[in-house]
């Protein structure tokens, strides 16, 4: 018995080490291009035009970051991205929670059909509807407004599905107990059930925020006024032609700069993001 245990422990130790080594190797593969991008961002465009390996040698400079901060409307675009991402996340949370509660708890005619229709939304790619959506928003005069940038992302079939499943997992006895205490339907939803769905809300909120922050296609065609650019679109607009050779340092600084807010979000919400990803996988 003892022998079996120790050989198992040794086997597990070896296995762990192999997994750890593989993880480190993969992490290096993942991190190196990012470090290379950071390195490139600290060199002048002129140096990189001649030799990209100069990244390994001094001098380094913060000039590219200075150019981004001083030379563009980056703070306006940052603000726009924050408004759009936060607004969209709040909207998705509100709508998905209400819809999820409805599908999970309320009996109404056509409930299953409507739920299936909502789920169809998961299968329709954005590109398939973008023309019609663009025309619709145009008719409603919503382009170049925050509403125009936020509203399309608020129809979130995944969010409705997630919240429906989450509400379904909460025993109905909880509702019944609250009803016995004379609570209204809204009060049960707002005060009792919603707080119980916080883990799902965190998952959904984080995913929505990341999606909204990184979105490029819709903001590109809806927020066409420079004052309404989001960070992704604004930063792309500052690139000169053939930036990949003549403006490589600046290009990389843009990439680093655009990624920083997400990195900060990740640092603060790391626990929730890991839980969200593993929860989604489960």
């Amino acid at each position: 018995m003892t022998t079996q245990l120790s050989s198992g422990a040794v086997g597990r130790g070896l296995g762990d080490r192999v997994i750890l080594a593989a993880t480190i190797a993969l992490a290096i593969v993942m991190v190196l291009p990012m470090l290379w991008a950071v390195g490139l961002s600290l060199k002048t465009n002129a140096e990189l035009l001649v030799d990209t390996n100069s990244v390994l040698k001094a001098p380094w400079t913060l000039r590219n970051y200075y150019d981004i901060l001083i030379g563009s409307g980056v703070f306006r675009w940052l603000l726009n991205s924050i408004i759009v991402s936060v607004g969209m996340s709040l909207g998705v949370l509100a709508l998905s929670s209400l819809a999820g509660y409805g599908f999970a708890r309320l009996e109404f005619p056509g409930r299953n059909v409507i739920f299936v229709l909502v789920l169809f939304g998961l299968a329709i790619p954005e590109q398939a509807v973008i023309l019609v959506r663009h025309q619709l928003f145009s008719d409603l005069n919503l382009h170049n407004t925050y509403a125009g940038l936020m509203l399309p992302g608020m129809s979130a079939p995944f969010g409705v599905f997630l919240m429906t499943q989450y509400f379904k997992a909460i025993p109905t006895e909880v509702d019944e107990a609250a009803m016995l205490d004379n609570a209204s339907r809204f009060k049960i939803f707002w005060r009792v059930l919603l707080p119980m769905t916080l883990p799902a809300q965190a998952t959904l909120g984080i995913f929505t925020f990341l999606h909204a922050w990184n979105d490029y296609w819709w903001p590109l065609v809806s927020g066409t006024n420079e004052q309404m650019y989001t960070l992704t679109v604004g930063i792309a607009s500052t690139q000169m032609n053939f930036a990949e050779s003549a403006g490589l340092g600046y290009l990389m600084a843009q990439a680093v700069f655009a990624g920083l807010p997400i990195l900060i979000v990740y640092m603060f919400f790391q626990k929730y993001i890991v839980r969200a990803v593993s929860g989604a996988a489960a």
Binding site: F137, L220, A236
Partner: peptide, 16 residues
């Protein structure tokens, strides 16, 4: 300023 060449944006602006 637009991201090169900017025709997606222009098409969207013309459509709207």
């Amino acid at each position: 300023p637009v991201a090169w060449p900017g025709y997606n944006q222009l098409a969207a602006q013309l459509a709207s």
